[in-house]
Amino acid sequence: MALKDNLKVLVVDDMPTSRGLIVQALEEMKVWNNSTENNGQTAMERLAKEPAHLILSDMNMPVMDGLELLRNLRANRATKGVGFILITGKPTPDLVAKGRSLGMNNMIKKPFTTPQLKACIEQVVGPLG
C-alpha cells in the first residue's frame, strides 16, 4: 500500500476557499484522508481526538495562528512528532526563522500549484507513491 493511501492530513485555514483549494490539490495527489479546521485552537482540539500524520497550516488565522499552533504541537507529547508545513503568502525571513526555530518541517508560499505542494509534502513525508 502506498503512503498516499495511509496519510492522514489536517488542513488548517480560516478561509473556506483556501481550505477547499488545498483539499482539492490533495485529492489530485490521490490523498483522500483529509480533514479541515479553521484555526489553530480547533485544530489542537481535533488532534486530541483524531491524530494526523501531517498538518498543512495557514499562517494568518484568528484565535490561534500557524506559528502558535506549531508551538502548541511541539509542546504536546502526543503531537510533537507530527509533520508541519506552514502555508503563507508572505514568507519573510523573520517568519522563516521563527518557523524553523519552532520546528516546522517545510513551508510553501501561496499561490502554489498542485505539483509544488506535492513536492513540498514529499520532502517531509517521503514519496507518496
Binding site: M15, T17, Q24, G89, K110, P111
Partner: peptide, 12 residues
C-alpha cells in the same frame, strides 16, 4: 484551477 488559487490568494 490555478487562476482560482491566484485569485483566492489576492483576496486573502
Amino acid at each position: 484551477s490555478q487562476h482560482v488559487k491566484y485569485g483566492a490568494h489576492l483576496m486573502e
